[in-house]
């Protein structure tokens, strides 16, 4: 995108990370993916291609039975709760940094999803959801007939 330039201000190498960051940000904005609201739980990463979306989340120490995934058209919601380990009488905390309670997160996807084919797995505290694109939403190749 940015070719070499003959003119420079200061050292060009100083600008490289900044330009790169700006470029990434631009690509992200124009890719049509909505950016998620900050400060939400759990944190989510999204990977996309034309066929499907892969959504991963860091959710350590959760009972998979208490995890709920709901898909509606082009939205997926991950919710559940993280249960604290309850202390018995005479036990005291030295420190308590881990968070507990209910969480819920909705992500808007770039296309409609075939909800019958959604797969989710939870291992090592990581949730991975595979969301295949709905058949009717896939781009279709148009045959051109020659007269």
């Amino acid at each position: 995108m940015f070719g070499p330039r003959i003119w420079r201000f200061g050292s060009l190498s100083d600008w490289v990370p900044e330009v790169q960051r700006l470029q990434n940000e631009m690509n992200r904005i124009f890719s049509g993916l909505p950016s998620p609201a900050p400060g939400n739980d759990p944190l989510i990463n999204v990977w996309v291609n034309n066929e499907e979306v892969k959504l991963t989340a860091e959710l350590p120490g959760i009972d998979p039975e208490k995890l709920e995934i709901a898909v509606l058209a082009d939205r997926v919601t991950v919710s559940g709760s993280r249960e604290p380990e309850l202390l018995k009488e005479g036990e005291t905390y030295h420190r308590s940094e881990r968070s507990f309670g209910r969480f819920s997160r909705t992500v808007e996807l770039p296309f409609k999803v075939n909800s019958d084919k959604v797969e989710a797995k939870y291992e090592k505290g990581l949730l991975e959801i595979r969301l295949p694109r709905a058949e009717e939403d896939k781009p279709r190749k148009i045959e051109i007939r020659s007269a």
């Binding site: 120490g61 005479g90 036990e91 905390y93 030295h94 420190r95 881990r98 090592k124």
Partner: peptide
């Protein structure tokens, strides 16, 4: 990390997804 102390032990829990 959470660390708590019981009568017999010190228990440490650390969130390390992955």
């Amino acid at each position: 990390v959470d660390i708590y102390e019981t009568k017999e032990a010190l228990v440490l829990l650390a969130d390390m997804p992955g």
